[in-house]
Structure formats: structure tokens, C-alpha cells
């Protein structure tokens, strides 16, 4: 690990200003992803700004009947929160499907949104990776791609967003609240928060340098059966090959987003009207234009079948 200086700012605005003014500075919250990457020298910050202890760790009801989730609320606490369990089951289920108990105790809501891909070529510093080292190429394109993106990728990158929570946030139409170095707040719809790789895969999100996530807002609850189905190589503590976050009625109508298939949680709202017709009618539209490799084409069939299982669960 490269050496770094460290500070604990007194407020979110001070934290944002500290990262904006210090070269190669990063926020640290739970640190479960960042420190892992620092040990491998994939991340080499010169300065860490610790945002624990800024009071961003509460879950509050909003006037609109939704929830305001502080950026530093731990995954364990969010999944166990009574309102989340009652009204946002898809979010609780997605959180509990991710990582291990130890990691969920540390990992935060904002950090979870910002976690980086687990593409093996991003992690292997001997390989070309445009996300890790812009302009170096992408070894994944002709490499081992079984876990990688089937849609929304580019000639520069076929990495996936690895998270579960963000897929649930996408189907819930969450918004991300931030503060910048000048102290100005803004909100970003979750659909516009993560980017597709395009020709700039090193940028995972549309956050500006020094912009700090302060909260994630959930609109008022959506009725229906809340489902998160995750298909992975082992029963626990593994990343999704494909996941489905869905809120469905008895007739199959509702909303659905997919994880493990793209550089961001993947949702095509226009296809949702066909949910009562069954999974195939929906996934044909959701994955129109998919460009799978020979190793990951199975994900298209798996996505259809996983949605089919979710529809059966909702209808039961």
C-alpha cells in the first residue's frame, strides 16, 4: 500500500472541500472496498478524508412518505430497519444477499453505490484495463468473460457493476443526494448516477471530483410483492451472475431491474407493461441489442428464467 495522509473533517461540506483541494484525495467510509484496492495498488490515494462520524448515519421518514437514508448507514442497519423490512422488502433482500455479515457491518449505503467492478482484469495489475489505467486496452474482451457484461458495454470495457443494493435502489426509483466543495447540494436520479463505460470506463459514476454523497432518498413505498432473486456460483457470499429486483402484483404487473449484466443496474421501463405476459416478452425487450461473448451468453437465458421465477413467486 502507498503511504497517505489522513484527516477527519468536521462536516460534510468540509469533507467535500478537503477532497476537492487535495491532489489524489479520496473519501473513506467503511473502507471494505477501498482498502482492498489500496493493498493491491489499484487505488493509490495520497490523502484519505474519513467521513465516518459526520452524523450521516440516520434513516428518517420524509414528508412525501418515503425514507431518507444517510450515506453512512451500514448495510446491516439498513436491512434491519423496520420501515425497510416492511415497506421496501426488495432493498432489505438485496442488502442481505450481498457480501458477508462482517462486511455488511462496515459497508455503507454510499460506499455500496461506489464500489468498483470485480472484473478479474481490473484486479490483475499485469493486465490491460481501461478502467484501471485509461488507454491501456481491455484484456476482458478476448479473455475470461463469464461474469462480465452482456449489454451496455463498449470496445473499451465490458465490466459489470457488482452490487446488489443498487439494483434494488434502481427499481425503487431512489435519488442520490450530494454536496460539493462549495457546499451546494444536488440530487441525482439513480438511473443517471452510474455511467455506461463508453470510451471513458475509468469513470463509474457522474459524481464530480470532491462531490460527497450525503443521503439516498426513497420515494413512498410501492405496493406488491418485493423480490430480490440472485443467481450465483455458491449459495452465499458471492457476486451475482444475474440478479432480479422486482416489485410485482398478483397479475405479474410491476417493475423490474437486473443486476450482474451491465456496467450499471439495468432497467428498461418501457418493457414493464408486458410483465403480465411473462418473462420472455419482457427480457426480449430489456436485452434487445445485447452483445454477449461466447462465455456469457448464458446470462440472457438465465435472466429470463430468473424473472420467470420471480413472476411465479409473485403469483403464488
Amino acid at each position: 500500500m502507498k503511504s497517505f495522509t489522513y484527516e477527519r473533517p468536521g462536516s460534510p461540506a468540509e469533507a467535500a472541500a478537503a477532497v476537492a483541494r487535495t491532489p489524489e484525495a479520496k473519501f473513506i467510509a467503511g473502507g471494505t472496498n477501498l482498502l482492498d484496492l489500496m493493498k493491491l495498488q489499484i487505488e493509490t490515494p495520497r490523502h484519505l478524508v474519513d467521513v465516518n462520524g459526520l452524523g450521516l448515519d440516520t434513516v428518517e421518514p420524509t414528508e412525501e412518505g418515503g425514507l431518507r437514508i444517510g450515506a453512512l448507514v451500514r448495510n446491516t442497519d439498513l436491512a434491519a430497519h423496520p420501515r425497510v423490512r416492511t415497506d421496501y422488502g426488495v432493498l432489505a433482500r438485496a442488502l442481505l444477499a450481498g457480501a458477508s455479515g462482517q462486511l455488511r457491518n462496515k459497508a455503507t449505503t454510499a460506499g455500496n453505490l461506489l464500489q468498483r467492478t470485480r472484473c478479474p482484469y481490473f484486479y490483475d495489475t499485469a493486465q490491460a484495463c481501461n478502467k484501471r489505467q485509461p488507454g491501456s486496452g481491455c484484456s476482458a474482451l478476448d479473455g475470461v468473460s463469464r461474469q462480465l457484461a452482456v449489454i451496455g458495454g463498449s470496445e473499451a470495457c465490458i465490466a459489470t457493476h457488482p452490487g446488489d443494493m443498487a439494483v434494488a435502489m434502481r427499481v425503487l426509483d431512489a435519488t442520490v443526494e450530494t454536496i460539493d466543495a462549495a457546499g451546494a447540494a444536488r440530487t441525482i436520479p439513480i438511473a443517471e448516477f452510474h455511467r455506461l463505460p463508453g470510451d471513458e470506463p475509468s469513470r463509474d459514476t457522474n459524481l464530480e471530483p470532491g462531490e460527497l454523497i450525503t443521503a439516498v432518498m426513497l420515494p413512498k413505498p410501492v405496493a406488491g410483492t418485493h423480490i430480490y432473486r440472485k443467481v450465483r456460483d455458491r449459495a452465499s457470499y458471492a457476486y451475482a451472475l444475474v440478479s432480479v429486483a422486482a416489485i410485482l402484483g398478483k397479475d405479474g404487473s410491476g417493475h423490474v431491474a437486473f443486476g450482474g449484466v451491465a456496467h450499471k443496474p439495468w432497467r428498461v421501463e418501457a418493457a414493464e407493461t408486458d410483465l403480465p405476459k411473462g418473462a420472455k416478452a419482457v427480457t426480449e425487450q430489456v436485452f434487445a441489442g445485447a452483445k454477449p461473448t461466447h462465455e456469457n451468453a448464458y446470462k440472457l437465458k438465465l435472466a429470463e428464467r430468473t424473472l420467470g421465477a420471480a413472476l411465479n413467486q409473485a403469483r403464488a
Binding site: 473513506i28 467503511g30 473502507g31 471494505t32 482492498d36 493493498k39 455479515g101 462486511l103
Partner: peptide, 26 residues
């Protein structure tokens, strides 16, 4: 040393965590 095996698990402020994936100064 990467949070995958759990051999480093400690209980910090009542919660189990991977002690390898957190800085002592935090």
C-alpha cells in the same frame, strides 16, 4: 488479508468486522 476468509474477525463496538479491511486509526 482481503476480507474473504474471516480469520481476522474481531468484535468492535459490539459488531464483528474484518480487522484486515479497516485502518487502526479509524
Amino acid at each position: 488479508d482481503h476480507g474473504q476468509c474471516g480469520a481476522c474477525t474481531m468484535i468492535v463496538d459490539g459488531r464483528r468486522i474484518n480487522a484486515c479491511l479497516t485502518l487502526a486509526i479509524m
